[in-house]
Design a binder for these strands. Structure first.
Length: 502
DNA sequence: ATGTGC
């Protein structure tokens, strides 16, 4: 059997693109990396594998802990990590969701062709940059008051559409229809709400962006038809999260775990994996608060969508819905934990079990943690919107601002291989600090414009350097692995036209 | 990711 070892961590190749870290010591389950040999070499260079192995110590983890092909090291739990944990006997881990709760991405279609936009890129990028708040700190599309925050946290996109910031179809074309039914705004602290109030409709910083793109390739005609995508079409990608509100909420609950569940914390190999035991008051409150932050992030992307439609309407002197057909393709969460029912191995006592200890398989309710991973439910799954039910849910995978992005559809193998999940992006190759040593923001922008006709406008040159195309892995290779594993199948590829950043 | 550290 082929095997590879990185810094004392050995992986056995089970089959093409599937590498297992065998269970040993206090690991509850094995761990698996879904990657080609080339991607595995990159994943093995940072702390990802050790973090993935540590994650298997979380109580109640069922089946192997997973790392998607774009995985890299994160806070405690790797980015690109998927961890399914028994919701009755296990735990829920804020560290396995991430600071930016429901950081995610949506794609908006248009009826414009690249030729309609060509030559007007700078006018468009200037108008978008002017209209859409970005960067660190406050300022949003709307000035939120207490009612707005409560509406957003409780009801998500439903609230935004009622307030006039969207159209009816925006609801159906969003994961969970833009509203977590189990959101509990009362478990979000006043401090977090105060931070979110003036950030409703703002991109933020880091890897967040709004990008106008053109469809360059269609790989599966019948799926692209169902998604309303065709070659040459202009689309808009919006990538952002829950800003200070989600960050504050993650922090609030990490502190409470330290105070109220120090025993569980002590038992973990890395304190950053902090988790609350299933059934505890804290677990319930975090789950409800996280659901509210998820709704906030959806409202954030909805308000940016609203403003984007207005900008396109102005620039192209047309009605954004009736003429430009700016409908939402889909909105997917990249950082989330949700109760989902999946089939898992169970022992004689009926509890989830792995390897030889499993005597049967049965449906169990799990906290599926996806941290830097996308839900990728296949055709016929009841949670796929009706318009896409026969082909599978759209999966949106942003690459870098120099490489473009992909639209996939949930693959037929995703439920059995990855708890209905696939990759979420290209994955970082180097730290932000290293990126700033390697690149200069202004040079990156000049090169993109002169060599690829891509127009980037950003609040901070440092952010452009941190997000330079060269700091990312090869997104083509990431989606090739997803496609070959059958967890997410390529549908279309896009290429950047212009991009605004924090 | 983030009022760019507690």
């Amino acid at each position: 059997m082929t095997s590879r070892e990185f810094d004392g961590i050995r992986l056995e190749k089970l089959r093409e693109h599937v590498w297992e870290i065998p269970r040993e010591g206090d690991m509850n389950v094995p761990a698996r990396v879904l990657a080609s040999e080339d991607l595995l070499e990159e994943i093995g260079e940072d702390d990802t594998l050790r973090q993935l192995r540590n994650a298997t110590h979380l109580p109640g983890m069922v089946e192997p802990a997973l790392c998607m092909p774009d995985g890299h090291q994160g806070y405690g739990f790797p980015v690109g990590g998927v961890g399914a944990i028994d919701a009755r006997t296990g735990c829920i881990s804020p560290g396995a969701v991430g600071y930016d709760i429901n950081c995610g991405v949506r794609m908006v279609r248009t009826s414009l062709a690249y030729d309609d936009v060509r030559g007007r890129e700078e006018e468009l990028v200037d108008a978008l940059f002017e209209a859409i708040p970005s960067g660190l700190g406050g300022g949003g599309v709307i000035d939120g008051d207490a009612d707005a925050i409560d509406g957003a946290l409780e009801r998500g996109v439903e609230w935004a559409v009622e307030e006039g910031y969207g159209i009816e179809s925006d609801l159906a074309q969003c994961e969970d229809e833009g509203r977590r039914p189990d959101a509990r705004p009362e478990y979000v602290s006043q401090k977090a709400k105060d931070r979110g109030r003036n950030q409703l409709g703002s991109l933020g910083s880091g890897n967040h962006f709004l990008e106008v793109q053109r469809v360059t390739d269609v790989f599966r005609d019948e799926v692209a038809d169902a998604y309303g995508l065709s070659e040459g079409q202009v689309v808009v990608l919006i990538h952002c999260g829950s800003r200070g509100l989600g960050h504050q909420t993650c922090n609030d609950y990490l502190r409470r775990i330290e105070r109220e569940h120090a025993d569980l914390l002590e038992s973990l190999p890395d304190k950053e994996l902090a988790a609350a035991p299933a059934g505890s008051e804290l677990a319930e409150e975090y789950y409800g608060a996280m659901g509210a932050c998820i709704n906030f992030a959806w409202v954030n992307r909805q308000l940016i969508t609203h403003r984007t439609r207005e900008v396109f309407g102005d620039v192209f002197d047309a009605d954004p819905i009736d003429d430009l057909e700016m409908e939402l393709l889909y909105d997917v969460a990249h950082n989330i934990a949700k109760k989902e029912t999946h089939e898992v191995g169970v022992g004689p006592d009926g509890l989830p079990a792995v390897g030889d200890e499993a005597v049967d398989r049965a449906d169990r309710e799990l906290y599926v943690h996806r941290k830097g991973a996308t839900r990728a439910f296949p055709a016929d799954h009841e949670e796929v919107p009706e318009a896409y039910r026969s082909v599978g849910q759209p999966v949106i995978i942003p690459g870098s601002m120099g490489a473009g992005s992909y639209v996939l559809r949930g693959g037929s193998e995703s439920m059995s291989v990855s708890f209905g999940s696939t990759a979420h992006g290209a994955g970082r190759l180097m730290s932000r600090t290293q990126a700033k040593q390697e690149f200069w923001g202004g040079d990156v922008q000049d090169d993109l414009e002169s060599e690829q006709a891509i127009y980037v406008k950003a609040q901070s040159g440092a952010t452009v350097a941190e997000e330079a195309p060269g700091v990312y892995k090869d997104v083509d290779e990431v989606v090739r692995v997803s496609d070959e594993l059958g967890i997410g199948d390529t549908v279309a590829r896009t290429f950047p036209v212009c991009n605004i950043k924090g």
